[in-house]
Write a protein that binds this DNA or RNA. Structure first.
Lengths: 232, 232
DNA sequence: AGATGATGTATTTTCGAAAATCAATGATAA
DNA sequence: TTATCATTGATTTTCGAAAATACATCATCT
């Protein structure tokens, strides 16, 4: 029996597949902030019909990665300083809450996960020799932050954190300024790891807030973002 | 020029309209937790085609009011004790954060809004003579809680709070036990109002957490909810 | 000139039918 | 009997065309 397995990143339905691809393209910045998303173009680019496209965009609109104006169509969500400020605020609250809760509830296995993740992160530097961000470092960086909150044991908290991370990743990737800053901040990550393993919630709280704030500071001073309507 | 205005609650597109109606029916409990949502039936009930229905359900799925199993269809989101526990936790955090932030940022006009809302709430009792919940009291109750956080000035915080409130309202309305308890808790609301107007964030924090927890306690002891798969 | 209204085009929104998938039933073989 | 496999029916998923709406252009009137 021949089972046509999809070896690429496709999910089962076309809608789920095109949702994943659209989300990646938005978060990676290939679809620019504010860009119109016409169905004729999308149909060609992604090779699917209207129905899965509309559904995927509706789902992305619910997550605020795209916006819908009725009878005028979908656009990639615009970026702005005020939105980034709001995002930072919310992320500071949600991340610190998730970490605090993980510290309260995490077991030895969770601690081991954190230690393993910080170790793996330290083995790799953020920039490749030619000055670009190393994708493998990106993976380990995300894995480290995920490990910090892995024991928080709240589906809703995890969902909101995940959505906020998507938004933050988009700003980060749009900011060439950030990418080239080569801000490895291994020291910050180590301090965070230490505080968490020591179950010191208050220190971890301070560290994660500063960590997130510093990233936003760098993005805020990026002139390249003006092109994308950052100041409108 | 004859302008066919929709006088009912319809929004502009069919998808937005059927989204509103589906959401109401789920939150009000008319569509029972776990119930299958077949397109043939929905097409008849709501009088629209497949496209707007699928989009509306996709949007509701993103908010976790319905769940989608690929190739198996949509269902109303099930309820459970563990989900209600998670919902309570998240609501305590989000509501108390929103109130704290409103206390920090609210001006005189915001204070006036709180005072006006608690006054209106006090003029009405929660139960009608025949033992049902008074819809107008419901409106004023929601308006009061909204007024507390009206100055928090964070789109994301407001969005998450709104979603959590939808989920909480559903549990509350599903619980006949709660409805008949006639728990007016005007005293709790007054205390909350006083603390907020006095800009006492710590007291307000304690009060809102207890307020939310007490509601959940009542729902948890409701035997009627077993029918809806509360304990699976 | 400026405002108003009409016309045509581009685009979204919606519908109904076709394709794909799942679930249940029954048939066949070990 | 039990397990495996085909067949049927129910349902979801997807496509392409039709209807509805917005936008730009141009003509008309004051």
């Amino acid at each position: 029996m021949t089972m046509t397995r999809r070896l690429d990143g496709d999910s089962k339905t076309l809608m789920a597949s095109v949702y994943d691809r659209l989300r990646s393209d938005i978060v990676d910045g290939e679809l620019r902030p504010g860009a119109r998303l016409r169905f004729d173009e999308l149909k060609d680019s992604y090779g699917v019909g209207l129905s899965p496209l509309r559904e995927a965009l509706t789902r992305l609109a619910a997550e605020k990665l795209v916006v819908l104006e009725e009878h005028k169509g979908f656009r990639v969500a615009p970026i702005s300083r005020s939105d980034l400020t709001d995002l930072l605020f919310m992320r500071q609250e949600i991340e610190s809450l998730a970490i605090r809760r993980s510290i309260e509830r995490g077991d030895d296995q969770w601690e081991s996960g954190v230690v393993a993740a910080i170790h793996a992160l330290g083995k790799r530097s953020s920039l490749t020799p030619d000055g670009h961000i190393d994708p493998e470092w990106e993976n380990r960086h995300r894995a480290f932050h995920d490990s910090l909150v892995a024991a928080c044991d709240s589906p809703r908290l995890m969902l909101y954190r995940c959505q906020l991370t998507d938004h933050a990743d988009r700003y980060r990737k749009l900011s060439h300024h950030y990418s080239s800053s080569g801000r490895d901040h291994l020291a910050e990550h180590c301090a965070l790891s230490d505080a968490v393993v020591a179950r010191d919630a208050e220190t971890a709280n301070q560290l994660i807030r500063n960590h997130l704030a510093r990233t936003v500071e760098i993005i805020m001073t990026d002139e390249d973002l003006r092109d994308s309507g950052f100041d409108d």
